[in-house]
Amino acid sequence: MSTLRIEGLHARIGDTEILHGIDLVVPAGEVHAIMGPNGSGKSTLSYVLSGRDGYEVTAGRALLGEQDLLAMEPEARAAAGLFLAFQYPVELPGVGNANFLRTALNAVRRARGEEELDAVRFLKLARAAMKSLAMADDMLKRQVNVGFSGGEKKRNEVLQMAILQPSLAILDETDSGLDIDALKIVADGVNALRGPQFSALVITHYQRLLDYIVPDRVHVLANGRIIRSGGPELAAELEAHGYAQIVAEAA
């Protein structure tokens, strides 16, 4: 089972410590939200968990099931079931979206000991996923994220998630820049994966997304620490009073 277990995690960028000791458990099958003011370390946490260069973990650990995430290469983490929907999806000029998706899917399937999909079976799977995300077919022919609108980029992230079928998804402000229709589509995409084998860490600024992806737990991250945790009602409280009061209480 793929419980995410983060214990005493400290991480720095250069000489600056950003995460000052994070403790967090997301049991398999649950969706947790992380909320917090800008600059509190939400994206840093998502990058440290997915293995981006430039972050030094100085203490603590992060396990996905039995696996020590922090000891693994980024691609091995993906194969182990981790998926990060980027806050700022990266453009890949010259790389076609279909080729990108199929290469990623087959790399992950190979690493998981599953057979690779040929072009026909892949296209069938991709088209079905795109349909449920209300994406136009020509999206597959375009270069990855190049010339995509903000909303298209976010939808493309969710498409990748739908195709790669992770056991733990981290969605970093996937709601930002989406209108309400797109937001519902994205939420449907996440909810479709929900089940005992899937857990998610939904990073968001606003309660709005959490009306559609109802979390089991909500955590407030401020200045590199989780300062409060609670049920879904915590999101509503934050929406009503803002972060200032909670941050002040915790200080």
């Binding site: 691609e75 990060l84 890949l92």
Partner: peptide, 14 residues
Amino acid sequence: ADQLFYLRARGVPA
């Protein structure tokens, strides 16, 4: 580096 990480984060070996 960002492009490389994006691909690797999707499971594509380095």
